[in-house]
Design a protein around this nucleic acid. Structure first.
Lengths: 215, 215
DNA sequence: CGCCATTTTGAGAAGTGTCAAGTACCGTGG
DNA sequence: CCACGGTACTTGACACTTCTCAAAATGGCG
């Protein structure tokens, strides 16, 4: 949870990211901002009337209870847009999970973006409501299965998937403890449904078994 | 879960509801539709590019799992607008909880309502994400407390509140069983926090106790 | 007044959380 | 390149909340 890092990391400079800033529809350039793993994009209580598009990396959106319990309401991956919640509710954090590059869209006076934003906001709402079904009515193994399928779908439906987030993040997203997440993943590994290639890289060996757990 | 009832019930005719239909911004009249308790407003799988405003009554929005488990994602009360989810996701039901009167807003070709709809959709999204924290990270008693405070706030912060929904509905909203809902309510009654005037009418005697349970 | 659905209450089971210890991974520095 | 240390993850034993199943009580409504 470090401070915002808005300068390029050596990695990105080396790779030439953002050497030619894109241009937004009203003609103003939209530069890339970089965030280190764990750094804050916007804080609970901040009024940020912007939205963000992820160029590379991953972001977690979450809320906190007074005693520190955390609920991650969404993960956003490369190519996705987020940041609507900041406009309205002053109770959400956004943090980079890994080194992340973002394009920030600030509101322009006199320019109404409702037409572009509405479909994105609706998709975000539906996603939250679908997630509610998972968290409210599914068992630990069903939640993990739903999560893995979602991640696989969003990574191009490949059998091998990358989980940029920690077990704690997964637990806080699914409403489970880190230990339960770990136990369920181990059980799926022992059953031959999953095969791990490193802690956060895994292969879905039996996607049909996983899917059958979701409904 | 009866069929759609689009005619006036004797009750409404007697009370003269909707004798003078309102008129929408584009000049077309927006008539009131009536729905009996339990009747379906739109079904999972239906493509309805409309939204609805509640004149009187109450509505539940929910999703189902294959085995019948239900998650209510939202309750909507008089004065509120809903129906965005139907545009996008084909997996939501909307039902009247009690006799309900709705104004239906159908999309008009060439008329862009994004500007009006975006704030409503955002509020809906934030509400779902806030609910996620309750369902994912709070105990049974905390969930009930949060629910009662929300209902009280939406009914004008009166001490006495009406719950139009059944215990089953409350359970399916909070991710609890009907028995747990009942037990928690009984415990709050025994502690003097709540006083019941009939099953679905109650008085919050110690709002501070209730609020202290939420954070 | 009596029926029927809804709600409440009880006892036991199951799933998940808590606490504690052990293991694996990964970046750092030698 | 390998040893080291710290963090993240896994595993185990047990506790506790919530669920399940069952039965009784309540209340609304004809």
């Amino acid at each position: 949870m470090n401070a915002i890092v808005n300068i390029r990391t050596p990695f990105e400079i080396l790779n030439g990211v953002a050497q030619q800033p894109d241009v937004s529809k009203d003609g103003r350039p939209v530069p890339l901002s970089f965030f280190h793993a764990g750094s804050e994009i916007y804080a609970q209580g901040e009024k940020v009337a912007s939205h963000y598009q992820i160029e590379f990396g991953a972001v977690r959106i979450y809320r906190l209870l007074a005693d520190g319990r955390r609920q991650i309401t969404a993960f956003h991956l490369a190519g996705e847009t987020f940041g609507f919640e900041a406009d309205l509710a002053h109770h959400f954090f956004a943090e980079a999970i890994v080194t992340t590059g973002l394009r920030t869209f600030r509101p322009v006076a006199g320019l109404d973006r409702s037409r572009e934003l509405l479909p994105l906001a609706l998709r975000c709402m539906v996603r939250a409501q679908e997630h509610l079904l998972v968290v409210g009515r599914q068992t630990a193994i069903e939640r993990i299965a739903a999560f893995l399928i979602d991640m696989a779908d969003r990574q191009g439906e490949l059998a091998q998937i990358e989980l940029p987030m920690s077990r704690q993040d997964i637990g806080d997203y699914l409403g489970l403890t880190i230990e339960t997440v770990s136990r369920v993943l181990s059980r799926l590994r022992d059953k031959g449904v999953l095969k791990f290639h490193g802690l956060r890289t895994l292969e879905i060996r039996k996607p049909e078994t996983l899917r059958s757990l979701c409904e």
